[in-house]
Amino acid sequence: MDLSTLYTEIILQHSRNSQNRRQLPCATCKERGHNPTCGDDITIELQVEDGRVVDAAFTGQGCAISQASTSMMIDLVRGKTTAEAQQLIDMFLAMIRQELGSDVDLNVLGDAIALQGVAQMPARVKCAVLAWHTFQEAIKTGA
């Protein structure tokens, strides 16, 4: 595993200086996600109106991968309908599971494409997917 494919500038930026790390005063749903074995603990807040994610933010703590992944996901789903967001999340999870064909255009995942290398690191997969599963729970229960 080459560290330079994992600890990229973009991942460090998202994990340390994310604009998405804040509380959302007008949140319509909220979901906490937790990796009990390692201590990643995030809370995602969403403002969903007419089936669209108007705004999203997160708080919490964890490793660089989990925090960057959360911030990247929020950038990606903001402004999307919940159905569009769901599709992107499925695509991200499939990328991490290495189930996507080579013809799939990963650019639609935005910055989250930088997490592709995590697929090679089984011990870190749960860090990368935490936020995405948490979002799925949030819209299932809240929207």
Partner: peptide, 13 residues
């Protein structure tokens, strides 16, 4: 400033 899981991954490498 470094989460233990990042520490472990980098040390592993």
């Amino acid at each position: 400033g470094c989460h233990p899981h990042d520490v472990a991954t980098i040390l592993d490498c």
